[in-house]
Design a protein around this nucleic acid. Sequence first.
DNA 1: CCAATTGTGAGACTCAGTCTCGATAAGAAG
DNA 2: CTTCTTATCGAGACTGAGTCTCACAATTGG
Lengths: 144, 144
Amino acid sequence: MIAEESLIEALDRAGYRLTEPRRTVAGLVAARDAHFTAADLVADARKRHLRIGRATVFRALDVFTDLGLVERVDLPDGDHAYVGCDPVHHHHAICTRCGRSLDIEDHGLSEVLAEVGERLAFTVTSHRLELYGLCDACRAAHRT
Amino acid sequence: MIAEESLIEALDRAGYRLTEPRRTVAGLVAARDAHFTAADLVADARKRHLRIGRATVFRALDVFTDLGLVERVDLPDGDHAYVGCDPVHHHHAICTRCGRSLDIEDHGLSEVLAEVGERLAFTVTSHRLELYGLCDACRAAHRT
DNA sequence: CCAATTGTGAGACTCAGTCTCGATAAGAAG
DNA sequence: CTTCTTATCGAGACTGAGTCTCACAATTGG
């Protein structure tokens, strides 16, 4: 979940050219409210009669990923997907029913992890954390 | 890091046939002390003049994964790999230098995560956590 | 020992992602 | 507004992991 303008603005600020294809991908990403694949975006583009090359979609996603506005997540089944998000260090809580993801702040997790590392004589330099479960809406829907 | 016998024993206990190819894959996995890919095992087999089909390696890894003796991990660069490990719920601390992985017990992490979920109105059903950094040996080697 | 059933191997196939290269367009300069 | 440089694009070939199919082979319960 991220606004098209944020994406375009970030491109500009980072010195990338504001091209039509990039705006198109920004629009496609902004229109998605759950995790998606590059192929999803290509299909979306087709549906909306927007001409865009497959490679370009991948390239734009790479750029957005570098800027931290899109992240690659790993789903429980091992598949990869992308999600739009804020460009701060955080993790994702991914709803296994609707695919939407919530950003999780670090909440002292890093410290806990460094501590765990201590005990193992392991220096933690980075980590990846993903939570899977049901978001509020799906939890409610599930009960019925 | 897991013994060949553990792998074979687990197959037996779970009712899988103890076939030659599976023993071969068990041997290949046991011989690896860091993360590996299916292609690595195929190459190892070639080197050791063991005939085994590529599909069979994938199938055996799937079985071992189901039994919890092998897990798929995601590396920081987004690649997948397999690691041998004990069949209990845990996470991995992966050395980015040598690729070896240490098993991390849950140490109350699950509770912390459930709590985080509470705050987000998100019901956490499972999670994935991977730590990246330097193991003790590589930390020492790195200093010099 | 033998049949029933599970497992195997070769190779075709799929799908995500990458690469190449000639064509195109953004945007700085004038 | 026009020009020029250079980043970017698109098409399609390519790669590599993983899956699928199907005829054949091996395990094992009886």
